[in-house]
């Protein structure tokens, strides 16, 4: 509960700050807090992934982008009232929806009645793998993981296509764009 409250505080920081560097670092802290919450929820595999992906790789990529673009966000031109209104209405609807959800930590919840007991009872008999998350991930739900690997593959290829080629220096008006971007970059 303390962790969740801390997460909410960090989120307020992320929303309010305009220095993008600080926002990205706070995002890393947020990911570590999220990983701790996941350990409390018994999801050790997920916590490990979140700590390495959320706090590691995505922070590095965001910092790389900031290096290529700029560090400071301009003051928002529009009034934030309409988005705030939308957000509050959405929150109201969602909280109204949570009232009917089963209480936290209840072993009789619907989610524990369906296929999960089968996985827990038969994992060792059928696959000889004690870590049920691994056996479900790779064997019972192998198609999901195949699809996910293909998503990674596609994203990798798309990023390489977008960024690998040389800068478009030969195109006619790109010199002006480059000069503009150089002017806008803050003095480091």
């Amino acid at each position: 509960m303390v962790l969740l409250t801390l997460m909410a505080i960090v989120t307020i920081g992320v929303v309010r700050l305009r220095n993008l560097f600080a926002v990205v670092i706070l995002g890393g802290i947020y990911s570590f807090l999220m990983a701790s919450v996941m350990i409390m929820l018994d999801a050790v595999d997920v916590a490990m992934t979140e700590a390495s992906v959320g706090a590691g790789i995505s922070t590095v990529l965001m910092l790389g982008t900031l290096y290529l673009t700029k560090m400071e966000e301009t003051r928002p031109a529009h009034t934030p009232l309409l988005p705030l209104f939308v957000a509050v209405v959405t929150a109201g609807g969602l909280i109204y929806g949570t009232i009917d959800l089963p209480p936290f930590g209840d072993a009789a919840g619907i989610i524990h009645q369906h296929v999960a007991p089968h996985y827990l009872q038969n994992s060792i008999v059928e696959t000889s793998v004690p870590n049920v998350v691994t056996s479900v991930l790779a064997s019972y739900r192998g198609f999901d993981t195949l699809g996910e690997t293909v998503v990674i593959f596609t994203a990798g290829i798309a990023v390489l296509l977008l960024l690998k080629g040389r800068r478009p220096a030969s195109e006619p008006d790109s010199n002006a764009a480059k000069a503009r971007s150089r002017r806008r970059r803050p003095k480091a």
């Binding site: 929820l41 018994d42 999801a43 595999d45 997920v46 992934t49 979140e50 992906v53 959320g54 790789i57 995505s58 990529l61 965001m62 790389g64 982008t65 989610i111 524990h112 296929v115 999960a116 996985y119 827990l120 049920v132 998350v133 479900v136 991930l137 739900r141 999901d144 993981t145 996910e148 998503v151 990674i152 596609t154 994203a155 990798g156 798309a158 990023v159 977008l162 960024l163």
Partner: peptide, 25 residues
């Protein structure tokens, strides 16, 4: 605890980083 959501979220995290990387590019 129930392993099924863990598996689904593991997939979601990795797909999430793929989306973020593409967006940043």
């Amino acid at each position: 605890s129930n392993p099924l959501p863990h598996v689904l979220i593991l997939t979601a995290i990795v797909v999430g980083i793929a989306t973020i990387a593409l967006g940043l590019a």
